[in-house]
Nucleic acid binder design. Structure first.
Lengths: 189, 189
DNA sequence: GAGAACGTTTAACATATGTGAAAAAACGAT
DNA sequence: ATCGTTTTTTCACATATGTTAAACGTTCTC
């Protein structure tokens, strides 16, 4: 739990009583490789925080291809958020790529926390905004780069995961074929 | 001003006194084609809201190419926000593509508003989150699509601007050359 | 430790997009 | 209307990436 409390303290202050209260609602939990934290179209029942492991967000495009759109690393809040149409149903899947250790809250407990701690919504809002900003910065430049540049950007922006996840997911994230990624990697060595 | 007040009312309620107060701080202003609302590296002095016209966000990549990363349409709040490194200095430029009619607030007045209207920060935070969500949805899929698919996505996601802006900006936004965009458009007719 | 399943690389060829230059079309000012 | 400017299209050729198939490597399971 310490990881999560430390994480929150970057965004707002909680006193000891509040920390105990939040800690009490939290469950430490494991998500095994390939298991899903949530699936597209299904209302999600939990809010999570990653302590260990890597996850990916993916969806199926209109050709039925599995497209990875983000990676989720350690120390990251996992919560659904409002889509631009106002709904809260996830449009993509969230799946563990490696075995993961998570802190999990039921939606009900989460709501209870937010009604009992006045600053909670504000803190979480800040976290979400920051996560979105990071996503935009990571993904934004890819489209105007060629395959080599995309891979190098990836290495810079996700420096800690290249050796822990299958390259097929990386290729998909970069919008190129795995064979092209292989070519790029060869040319760089 | 009505446009802006209507826009805000989607995110929170303001009473007549608050509306009058905000209206008082606002200036209606014009930004001519090719003029900048802000430039990369320079702290911005204003917050704006678009009533008429189209703007673009662009930056120069490491080859010196001018890359358009977003278009800004009518009824859109224009404000700098915290970068993921905590700074507030814009990393990109914001330029009018057509003559624009804007509502403008000085940063100082904007701060005053936010300290006098309790719900203000929350409202603006919601607006920013929504704008970011839209950006992610618009930009997200491009990288895994080919040139034709990118152009068709663009037409869907920005249905109102294709006839008002140079195609060179569209091509840059899509991550393809203008000649390729021309090919795509020909093949679609 | 053998076999299966999974992940990665390589190759030959097909296709899409980039490049550079020029023509054509649209737009603006006089 | 006309000229000059900007924008868009077209073309021939170069290059990058996709496609299909196979080989190679690694990890997991029994």
């Amino acid at each position: 739990m310490k990881e999560f409390i430390d994480f929150l303290s970057d965004y707002g202050n909680l006193d000891q009583q509040q920390i105990d209260y939040v800690t009490n609602k939290a469950t430490e939990s494991v998500l095994l490789k390939n298991e899903h934290f949530w699936e597209a179209g299904k209302v999600s029942q939990y809010v999570g925080f990653t302590i260990e492991g890597v996850l990916r967000v993916y969806y199926y495009n209109n050709k039925g291809e599995d497209i990875t759109s983000y990676f989720v690393e350690e120390n990251h809040l996992i919560t659904d958020w409002e889509n631009s149409d106002g709904s809260f149903i996830p449009v993509a899947n969230l799946q563990a790529i490696t075995d993961c250790k998570l802190i999990v809250f039921s939606k009900q407990d989460w709501k209870e926390i937010s009604s009992n701690i006045a600053s909670w919504n504000n803190i979480i809002q800040q976290v979400i905004t920051k996560h979105k900003t990071e996503k935009l910065e990571r993904r934004g430049s890819l489209v105007s780069e060629d395959a080599t540049e995309r891979y190098l950007s990836f290495l810079q922006k996700y420096p800690n995961i290249i050796n822990r996840i299958p390259l097929s997911y990386v290729a998909s994230y970069l919008g190129i074929r795995q064979q092209s990624l292989s070519r790029v990697r060869k040319s760089i060595r």
